[in-house]
Amino acid sequence: MPPAADAPLLVDRHGRVHRDLRISLTDRCSLRCTYCMPAAGVPWIPAHDALTTDELVRIAAVAVAQGITEIRLTGGEPLLRTDVVDVVSRLAALTGPSGRPEVSLTTNGLRLPELAGPLAAAGLARVNISIDTLRRDRFRTLTRRDRLDDVLAGIAAARAVGLSPIKLNVVAMRGVNDDEIVDLVRFAVEGGYEVRFIEQMPLDAGHVWSRVQMVTGAEVLAALRSAFDLVEAPGRGSAPAERWVVDGGPATVGVIASVTAPFCGACDRVRLTADGQLRSCLFARTETDLRTVLRTGGDDAAVAHAIRRCLAGKRPGHDIDAPGFLQPDRPMNAIGG
C-alpha cells in the first residue's frame, strides 16, 4: 500500500523513500550455517544490551508514523525469541498514515510447526524460509545440524495455516549446492512456493567470503534456462529479487544479485539490530544508537530525529566492487537480513 499523499516520508539525500523496516529480534540461531557462522557460534549480544519488547515496539511505532509500511522480523533466528508471537501481535496493531504495516518474517523454519498457527493469528502476513539444499547429508554438512526434516515440516506448517506467499531462500554456492538449482525450483513449483536464489554476500563471521566461489545471478539463470522457459515478471519496484515466470506461470522464481547487479538505487530498507542500532544499509560501517536515545529519556521526536539522521548519511550504494570496500564488522546474524 503506498503512503497517503500527506504522509511524512523517510527520504534520504538521494531521494529514496524508505518504507521497509527490518528488525532483528535476536542474534542467536539454532543452526550453524558454514557461510554465516563458525561451528562454536560467535560472541552473543549481552541480554542487558538487547532491546526490550517495549523498546522495540516503540521504535517501530515511530517509524510507522513516519511512513514505514512493511516490517520484516529477522535474526539470527527470530523464532528463538520467546515472546515472538506477542511481538508480531503488537507490531501488526500499529497504525500510521497508510494504515497498519504488513508484518513478515524470515526464518530457518525449525519452530514453525508449533508457531505457524499462533503467528498467523497474531497478524503475521507471510514468511521467507531458508533452505539451501534438499539433501539430508548436505544439509547436515552446511548447517552442522541434522534438521532438514524439521525445515520441511515448517514449510508445510506455514502453508497449512495460509501464510502466503511462502518464499524459500537459497544461497547458491559453487561446488556446494549449485547442482540443485533446478531441483529446488521443481520442489517449489510442485509445492506452490517461490524460490529465491541469493548471491552469497561478504557478511560471514569468519570474513572468508570469496567472489570466485560465489555463484552469480547470471549463472543461476543460465542453469534455470536449461530446464525451464523463463519470462521476466514486470513490476519489480524496490523489491530485491528480480522475478521470472516459470513455464508460463503461475509459478515464479526470484534472483537476488546483490553483488553482481546491485539494486541500491531503488533501496527502501532500513535495519534495526537486536541491540537497538539503526543501519541504513546491510553493508554500512556506521550505526545510529537508538537504544541510548530511549534509555536516556528521549521522546518520540528524538527517536524520529535519530532515524532521519541515520538516513541522511546513507550512501548511494554498497560499493562491494570499490577498491576500498571493507566488510562490515558485524556478521549477518548480528545485523539481521
Rank of each mutant, 00 (worst) to 15 (best):
D299F: 07
R308W: 05
L112N: 05
A61K: 03
N333R: 03
A125P: 04
V64I: 08
E70M: 15
V84G: 03
L94M: 02
P240V: 13
M1H: 06
A301L: 07
P165L: 11
R145N: 07
R138Q: 12
S210Q: 10
G67I: 04
G162F: 15
A61E: 09
T288Y: 02
D20G: 00
A7T: 03
D83V: 01
P316M: 04
A39P: 10
A156H: 05
L134T: 10
I256W: 11
L79S: 04
P2G: 08
D179I: 10
H318R: 03
H18C: 05
R243W: 08
D146G: 05
S280L: 11
L9E: 10
S24A: 04
A222L: 13
Y35V: 01
P262Q: 00
R28M: 06
L163H: 12
F139N: 02
A4P: 02
A322K: 13
L134P: 08
I45H: 09
G324K: 14
I166L: 13
G154D: 03
R136C: 13
N177L: 08
A274F: 12
L21T: 12
V57D: 11
T273W: 06
I129H: 07
N108I: 08
C264A: 11
P101N: 10
L290W: 13
G99Y: 01
S89H: 14
D178V: 10
K314G: 10
C33V: 07
A257Y: 06
Q277F: 13
P323E: 03
E219M: 06
C310W: 14
T26G: 00
A188M: 00
Q327R: 07
S130A: 09
A251P: 07
M332R: 00
R135G: 11
T273C: 01
V176M: 00
M214D: 09
V11W: 09
C264N: 03
P250N: 02
F139V: 12
D54C: 12
H207P: 01
L110A: 10
R225P: 05
I181W: 04
D178R: 13
D54S: 15
A160R: 15
L31D: 09
H18I: 02
V195N: 13
D49Q: 13
V57M: 12
L230G: 12
E199Q: 02
A116E: 09
G96H: 06
R174I: 10
D183C: 09
C281D: 05
L80M: 05
A227G: 02
L80E: 11
G313H: 04
C29G: 13
A266E: 11
P118M: 15
I335F: 00
G206S: 14
R225M: 05
R269L: 12
A122M: 14
A306T: 11
R211Q: 14
L31P: 04
A227H: 07
L31C: 12
E180A: 09
D268L: 01
L10P: 02
G162L: 15
S280F: 04
I45D: 07
P113G: 12
R138M: 00
S164Y: 08
A223T: 14
R13Y: 08
L290P: 02
P38V: 06
L278W: 04
Q277G: 12
R58F: 03
G265M: 08
P38D: 05
M1V: 14
E180T: 01
V176L: 03
V303A: 01
L184D: 00
M332W: 11
P165Y: 13
